[in-house]
Every structure is written in C-alpha cells, then in structure tokens.
Write a protein that binds this DNA or RNA. Sequence first.
DNA 1: ATGGTTGTTCCACAA
Length: 258
Amino acid sequence: MVKIATWNVNSAKARLPNILGWLDRASPDVVLLQEIKCETASFPKGDFEAMGYNCAVVGQKSYNGVALLAKQPVEDILDHLPGSPDDVQARYVEATVGGIRIASIYLPNGNPVGTEKYPYKLAWMERLRQHAQGLLKTERPFVLGGDYNIIPAAEDVYDPQAWETDALFRPESRAQFRALLNLGLTEAFRALHPDEQHAYTFWDYQAGRWPRDQGIRIDHFLLSPQAADRLVECRIDKGPRAEEKASDHTPVVLELAD
DNA sequence: ATGGTTGTTCCACAA
C-alpha cells in the first residue's frame, strides 16, 4: 500500500511543529504541501530529511509555494505547470515516485471575481486540463493532489447560497473542474464516499467557522484510470485542524494498492 | 452587508 497525503499548511515555518508531529503519527509515504510561503532555499528541508523524506520544493517569497516529500526517491521533477512561460507563481511541482507520477497543486483562489485574479484562475485550470490530457496519453498511473480552491458541488459547502458568487463555487469554476474530471479522472474522495455530508477540508479562521463546522471541501485527489484501478481509501483527517496554531486546512489521505 | 483571523511583510495584501 502507498499512502499519499495532501495538506495546505499555510506557511511551512509557522506550521513546522504541527507538520512534523502529524508526519510522525500518520507516516505517509508521500506528502504534498501547499502554501509553504517561503523561498525554496529557506524551506525547512533538514527537518523532513531527518524523518526520512526526500524533497522537491518550489518556493517563492511570502506567497504560494508547493512541495512534494517522499520516502522513496523523487525523480524527474517538473517545477511548473506548462503552458504559460511568464507565470512566475509557485503553484505546481510534479515528480515520479515509485512509478507513479504525482503533482502537488496550489490552484489560484480567483477572488475577488471581477479582477484579473478570476480569469487567471480559469486560465490556470485550462492549462491543468491540457497538461492532464498529455499525462493520460502515457497510460501510466498519476495522481494530481492539492488545494484546488474548488467546491465541486452544493454538498461540499455549509451554505451554498452564501458562496454562489465566490470564485471557489461560481459556475465557470465548477465547469472547468468538471471538464478536468471529464477527461476520465476520478475524484477519489467523492468516488468512495458518494453520500458523505459535511466532509470539509477547510474552515476559515474567521467567524468561528471551525467550532461551528462551517467548512468547505476544496482539497482533492484526482486520479488517472491506472491510479483509480488501485484506489483503496481516501479520507479527511480532521485532527490537525483542532490543534493549537492550526492551518485553516486539514490533510486528506489517499491509499493506493501496490 | 458585515464581521471576523492568520501569516508575511513592512504599516498592506492574500486568503
């Protein structure tokens, strides 16, 4: 069994004790991090290496930043999403681990709608769709995990009406996400748990969203057919969201058969 | 419509 986790940590440095503690307990084989919020050189790589992880890091100052950690060797690293050479935002890293192509994705938020941020989000998603189309042609297993900043459906948000006009839930955003799935990818959590309600991965720090369980499900694993054949489990671990100095996101864990 | 919190950086911005 291979255990792959994704977690938007909202700063690798501020969250370091939480991350190390969780890795020690959960012991995933592969970890996809988003919003590390530091430059590649200042990522606390040594702490993860000391726990036996190899690291591929794509950082930038202050914002964004993604990483892929794995107990097995990390090979053939791709440090950006192809299709827009001028895009400098650190939102994508992809590598091969144990014969599986794996990406850590931090999809643009897109708010406020009406600014250049929203078309940037939609264009980024179209680039991701094009790239996934290319990966599918290899007919090999791949896993695209991360913070998609997409609420796929009404059952994935505590108050659908309140989110109607938000970039995470607008029809154009959801249509672009659907187009990605319709290439033939499997959204692991919903495929395994079609009826599960209140299965959230993010709760805002503001307005008591966590204690009231008013969250949204925006962190996802998308699997190629060859990876979906091996799908065993996908669950949300709410534990880390309850800790002191928690990230606003909690980890999602995927298990694939060997 | 407002309010509310966290992180990084610099006294705003992103989420």
